[in-house]
Computed example of a mutant assay.
Amino acid sequence: MPASAAFVEDSKASVEMRNFYMNRDFRQAGAPQSKGEEWAQGFILRLESGYTDGPVGVGIDALGQLGIKLDSSPDRAGVTGLLPQGPQSKRAPDDYSELGLTGKLRVSKTTLKVGTLMPKLPVIVPNESRLLPQTFQGGQLSSMEIDNLTFNGGRLTQVSQRNSSNREDMTLMKGPRRNIITGANPTTDQFDFIGADYKWTNALTTGYHYSNLDSLYKQHFLTLTHTLPVTEGQSLKTDLRWSSADDDGNSNVDNRMLGAMFTYSIGAHAFGVTYQKMSGDTGFANVNGADPYLVNLLQINDFANQDERSWQARYDFNFAGVGIPGLTFMTRYVKGDNVNLGAAPGDGKEWERNTDIGYVIQSGPLQNVGIKWRNATYRTSFTSDIDENRLILSYTLPLW
């Protein structure tokens, strides 16, 4: 059938497999739980059709997710975010799964998707840091009709968290000292977003995005990225972010965020520094469970508390530069202070150190199998100290 030739020929499918071990150790006396430790196997099936021929192309995508418990116990569950937690106890179920379908229409360079979505925009970033990714239900319109301009707009109605197969209404992330308060019925089935990014040159892109979590907050977000070539093999990348959020009737949200990241790359080395500042009567506002689009978002913490200032130093090395392709290393350190502790005396302080080592096998029967070890140390004056390790084995198998 000619009308469906592209629908089939342009389709693709893959299965991503993630074997994920996580250990989170709470280091101070009196912690509610001494540690969290779980191990699980995840499967993520992605099916993407092409579009039918004609002025209006029609297609469909599918996302199937399955998580299988390999090791967990009630005394070690509930704090890793890796597996669901039982309703009556902390015992994790043996498995959990989800199937999401997305219908799509394409006209020229404009696409409308309705169903299961994973929009990646400054105002909404799905969390993919555990076994299975967070997904949303809703509709999204994306357009590139104007050269160098990318437009996105839409509405999300429900969320499925990274360790859950249930779809539920959305709410605000509150955090330990964001000092965000919500009124009665703090959930909603309406998150609206609209925005655009413009590529001025190959080196410079700017963006503006707006979002509204109905009755909870409204947010404006500005972004700028620029890459300056210095000499052969060297460049300086600038990443600037600013946002302003206010309440929408059922919260006390009042936040301004400034973030700046500068990365100097020289051959296989990259050296980065960041600065992030929160101001206003609350900390940063974002949808609960989603990743905040912040320069100091780390493995454990995001340094987004009320009035907090934070600085980061980061170093990356790609061992391909010394003849070992597939091996990478990253380490970073962030220190935050001036956290508003409310009625408690003084200002809060915290710091976090991360180290990642990853290797992707380049040839042989295990080609493209990846292994990554992620280590983090977090210390704070106002919540729990944490030592954390994650070991992740991953492989994506193309089906066609």
Rank of each mutant, 00 (worst) to 15 (best):
M1Y: 12
V8C: 10
Q33G: 05
W39T: 01
A40W: 02
E48H: 01
S49V: 03
Y51K: 07
Y51S: 07
I60V: 15
D61F: 07
A62D: 02
Q65K: 14
G67W: 09
K69S: 04
D71K: 09
S72D: 03
G86T: 04
Q88H: 13
P93Y: 06
L99E: 04
L105Y: 01
R106D: 02
R106I: 02
S108Q: 13
T110R: 00
K113S: 15
T116M: 07
M118H: 00
I124G: 01
P126Q: 08
P126L: 11
E128M: 08
Q134Y: 08
T135Q: 11
F136D: 04
G139H: 05
E145N: 07
T150K: 11
R155A: 10
T157H: 06
T157M: 11
Q158R: 15
V159W: 01
S160I: 02
Q161R: 13
S164D: 00
S164T: 01
P176S: 15
R178D: 00
T182Q: 07
A184C: 03
N185R: 10
F191T: 00
Y198F: 15
A203G: 00
L204N: 05
L204T: 13
T206G: 15
G207V: 08
G207Q: 08
L213T: 03
L213V: 10
L216H: 02
P229V: 11
E232Q: 15
D239R: 11
L240I: 15
N252F: 05
G259T: 03
M261G: 11
M261S: 13
I266R: 09
F271C: 12
T274N: 12
K277N: 12
D281K: 15
N286Q: 10
N296I: 09
N301I: 09
R314D: 00
F319E: 09
F319Y: 14
A320F: 06
D337K: 15
N338D: 14
G342P: 01
G342S: 02
T355D: 02
G358T: 04
Y359I: 09
L366K: 07
Q367K: 15
N375D: 08
F382Y: 15
T383S: 13
E388V: 12
R390A: 06
L393A: 12
L393T: 08
T396P: 00
L397G: 02
W400V: 09
W400A: 12
